[in-house]
Design a binder for these strands. Sequence first.
DNA 1: TCTGGTCAAGGTGGT
DNA 2: ACCACCTTGACCAGA
Length: 301
Amino acid sequence: MMIGYPCSNLTVGCSASRTFRLASFSPERLSETVNASLDCLETILQWNADHGIGFFRISSDTVPFASHPVMTVDWRAEFGSRLAEIGSFVRRHGMRLNCHPGQYILLNAPNEEIVARSIAELDYTAALFDLMGLDHTHKMQIHTGGVYGDKPAAIARFIERYHQLPEPIRRRLVIENDERQFSLADNLAIHEATGIPLLFDVFHHSLHHNGESIGEALDRFMPTWDGHGLPSMDYSSQNPDKQAGAHTVSVRLDDFGSFFEQLGDRDVDIMLEIKDKEASVLAVQRWLASRTAGNPAAVAG
DNA sequence: TCTGGTCAAGGTGGT
DNA sequence: ACCACCTTGACCAGA
């Protein structure tokens, strides 16, 4: 089991998700920005290695505008060797990376142009992993998409488009249950038709489900990962000061503890979607260590 | 140097 | 009809 965090580290003092406005695009600006982001990504991964953190989400802005028509630069050639070095570090340390392309990825949109732009963006993300030399267990997670007033039709369109995806995308793509539209049960139907692994977001599940307990949900999502590495989850909890669905500022160990009880001896990688990032990962690591020390039998295996 | 408005893209629910 | 939210903050113009 590895505990991870997304995109930025608040300790190291740099950002690995630098970008710029579309209007500011130039080849020079691109080089400067991407190289600075990759410098920081190396810093973060080293920091992670030093702190025993093996799971990390890279920003979908690692190469800004990579799938946009403005991109005339051969970014794969320009940054390929740096990405290969980073990938080599990741493999050497037994780390796992993940990426979460944005809300504009809609494989089941009725509009074919939106689908084409979505595939272009996924193609870029898959290329990042390919250039890093990372295998298909390093996943790109997206939401299933829009409902467009007819969920069965939206699911059917997703399945149809999935079968047409280029292999570098298909082997890394996973879908996540969301808090409003596509529940775990909806995604299971898609999994049965496609074999796509399902990334389980336990917080979204608590807000939108079909009556399954957490234990039942875990037992259903985990087998969808056969052959894809350790099943991967997103974890957050409710920010008590904000509207339902808002992520908490810092991990609530009581809430995590009750989740961990339900997890039992199941082995998963857990991405903490929490505002204070690596601080919560360290807090969970300390909690797990103290729990193991206090009750060795409980976490064995 | 600081800050508030704005940023490629779409869908959805709330006002 | 419009705005905020989601992904995750970061850029940038103007003071």
